[in-house]
Design a protein around this nucleic acid. Structure first.
Length: 112
DNA sequence: CGCTTGACGTACA
DNA sequence: TTGTACGCCAAGC
């Protein structure tokens, strides 16, 4: 698709997030890499915050460790986790008793 | 108009 | 191996 404007970076993130299948999750790094820059993960986070306000399923986007980072943007610390569990996403205990999404089982890659 | 912060990740010392 | 620094892009002050 033809590029539009420099801020199109946000729209690309939203486009990818909107294509995440039900019950699947992806990571900031994968989205950023799909956009062209692996280190743009931070910018992806900014776009996700705006995505939450756009009504996109940004709760399907987690960090590299499967940890839910943007729970604050959902208005509740357990909203994001509950949404993922409602979609059938499995949670695994992290190395610090921290529940993380089983990305190994639900990881979805942009372009699939 | 310029510096700092921010839902991360990779590279290097 | 662990810790620190850098990079990406946009918004806020």
């Amino acid at each position: 698709m033809a590029a539009k404007s420099p801020s199109d970076f946000f729209e690309r993130v939203w486009e990818v997030v909107a294509e995440i299948p039900f019950g699947s999750v992806t990571t900031y790094g994968h989205i950023a890499a799909h956009l062209g820059s692996k280190r743009a993960a931070r910018t992806v986070g900014w776009a996700l915050r705006a995505a939450a306000q756009s009504g996109l399923p940004c709760h399907r986007v987690v960090n590299r460790y499967g940890g839910l980072s943007g729970h604050a943007a959902f208005g509740g610390p357990h909203v994001m986790e509950d949404l993922l569990r409602s979609e059938g996403v499995s949670f695994v205990d992290g190395e610090n008793d921290v529940p993380c999404v089983d990305i190994k089982q639900h990881l979805w890659v942009p372009g699939t």
